[in-house]
């Protein structure tokens, strides 16, 4: 098996890796700079997570050789992310009910829906 796998292995490409390295560094700096603008909650989340997702896809595609990987690995990752989506369903399904019924012992409503001090 090992001989057959040699040819099938992903050929390393060092200049590509260094290019990706640069891109990741730039993206890190960008994501930190964006945070200094203290954007309101929703855009901050969208921008922050999309940059992170892009960085993660760079690492996944090139460093983990997902680019050109067999379909089964993608099927496995697809199934996993399907179940992760179900797990992320949790907070949105129950969040309104939880925060609405959240009370201190003396019965006043403890939960204000938003953050106390969003800039």
């Amino acid at each position: 098996m090992s001989s057959a796998a040699d040819t099938a292995r992903h050929q390393p490409n060092i200049p590509l890796y260094l290019g990706i390295f640069g891109a990741l560094l730039v993206l890190t700096v960008v994501t930190v700079l964006v945070s200094y603008f203290h954007l309101p909650r929703l855009p901050a989340i969208l921008i922050g997570l999309s940059i992170a997702a892009f960085k993660a896809s760079l690492v996944g595609a090139f460093f983990m050789h997902l680019k050109g990987e067999k379909a089964l690995i993608f099927a496995l990752l697809g199934a996993t992310f399907f179940f992760v989506a179900l797990l992320f369903l949790l907070p949105f399904l129950d969040s309104r009910a939880i925060s609405e019924q959240q009370v201190t012992y003396s019965g006043e409503k403890a939960a204000s829906t938003g953050h106390a001090h969003v800039p």
Partner: peptide
């Protein structure tokens, strides 16, 4: 996410 959404105040 669940704890942050339900918390009355959450420091940034």
């Amino acid at each position: 996410i669940v704890l942050r959404m339900a918390a009355p105040s959450w420091p940034a």
